[in-house]
Write a protein that binds this DNA or RNA. Structure first.
Lengths: 259, 259
DNA sequence: TCAAAAGTGTTCAATGTACACCCATGC
DNA sequence: GCATGGGTGTACATTGAACACTTTTGA
């Protein structure tokens, strides 16, 4: 785990450790009880909101880099992670004078317009999905706050980050029709209403309970167990689990869902 | 249009004009009479084959960069172009000693291991599709030959370019189910057999003529004209054209094809 | 008149969609 | 016993898939 000192050091000396002109931005979708949220950071001083992001170390793959960034913000290791698009408009990452001052103050370093971190940066977008009740968001050294925002009520974000979120959501919703999801999002054993709510939330629309269950079961990626979950003052739902074999096969070969 | 001198100059002085650590690789699919090909370049001296690619100028967008690269190799301007994935394995772009010598010879420049062009490079992959009978491939200054290769008979390519081709084809085939294609690939007026062959070729499988036509027409993206094309010693097929309004709508909103 | 390519419609199967009532549980 | 949420099946509509014969054209 990185210490704050390491991170500040990265701004000062990152020139030697990171790829210039490139960054990773992560759209982390948090799912919980029919709500879809996005993890955002609020920058110190300027108060602007941004996606969690970072730079790529000289010797790590893009995916390792995205995983590292997410782990630093969430502590989570096994996250459903997908590269979806790169953003490279020459003007996308313009920083204001105030931002530059903030970077200088936070890092205790001399930062002028020629600093590597201020050069034109192409950002590789990754999205990820997690159960947000499991996460304790941690700000990075440049940020005061790291917290979840409702997908429908995002503030204005820095750079082109609003566009990145929109594109990530589009990509996620497209992907969900071709690959199963849920493996890292649901407990090992889950109920039909749980996975149903997950799909409804991500797709942002209602899905008929019966038809939904029929399809997942007929695809064979989930199977019913002989156990039930006690949910208090209501009928106990059956538990299901993923058929890992068929789930992985569907991940690799794709499926055709049409909800 | 760039002269050879400009290109060689780019290797010598590109440090100032291009983004380091980043490149664009283009998988240009060429379609003609039921054959799908890919445009490849053969490097001077080493004889290795690669995708057309290049670096990103400081002030151009990623898409402009990809368009520029394709225009230099094909002369074509209006090409169906899609960003599909970025490739960033730290070892993906390792160059052999021989390659480095070749670069030095061709550019008449001193190139050692510290040269910017040899640094770790993340490549942003674009694919494009064109009618290859319209194209006269032009080698770049580093290459002897620029020519079409059958998609099923590709040679071993440099770096991870075989993987890039495979991923591009996967992305193209996925996209074709969600967005119409053909606008820049077919003449303004075309016949059903023509667009049918286009889809069959890209998808690499046979599609029932009647069902295929039924679907495209029922989606409304093509419409029948009162004209026919004379094709010699056979029955004259009707001409169709795209309904641009519905075509663009389908491009934006997506469609669900299931051939 | 023949060869080659294009036009066309129907039937059957599978899938998707819409829909409502009963059951279990804890308070 | 009641409120709440979960379980379940059927009928209908739509879509997909399979399939063959006739027409046009120029040689």
């Amino acid at each position: 785990m990185k210490t704050e000192k390491d991170k500040v050091d990265a701004i000062k000396n990152g020139e030697k450790h990171f790829l210039h002109h490139l960054s990773i931005d992560c759209v982390l979708f948090g799912y919980h009880e029919h709500q879809l949220k996005v993890l955002l950071l609020q920058w110190k001083h300027s108060g602007k909101w941004s996606l969690p992001g970072g730079f790529i170390k000289l010797d790590e793959t893009l995916e390792e880099s995205a995983k590292r960034i997410l782990k630093e913000r969430t502590g989570l290791d096994d996250i459903f992670l997908q590269q979806f698009q790169s953003f490279g408009d020459p003007k996308r990452s313009h920083r204001s004078k105030q931002d530059i001052e903030t970077l200088a103050i936070v890092s205790g370093s001399l930062i002028d317009e020629t600093h590597w971190i201020l050069k034109r940066t192409v950002s590789i977008g990754y999205y990820a999905v997690t159960e947000y009740s499991k996460v304790t968001p941690r700000p990075d050294p440049l940020s005061e706050i790291c917290e979840w925002w409702d997908i429908d009520e995002l503030p204005q974000l820095v750079f082109d980050h609003n566009i990145i979120v929109t594109e990530a959501l589009k990509a996620l919703r497209l992907q969900i029709y071709h690959q199963p999801i849920g493996y890292n999002l649901l407990p090992e054993k889950f109920t039909l209403p749980e996975i149903h709510a997950l799909y409804e939330t991500i797709l942002g629309k209602e899905l008929d309970r019966r038809n939904f269950a029929k399809k997942l079961i007929s695809l064979g990626i989930i199977k019913k167990l002989d156990e039930m979950r006690s949910i208090g003052a209501h009928r106990s739902p059956f538990l299901y689990k993923f058929d890992k074999r068929k789930y992985d096969k569907a991940l690799k070969e794709g499926i055709a869902l049409a909800f």
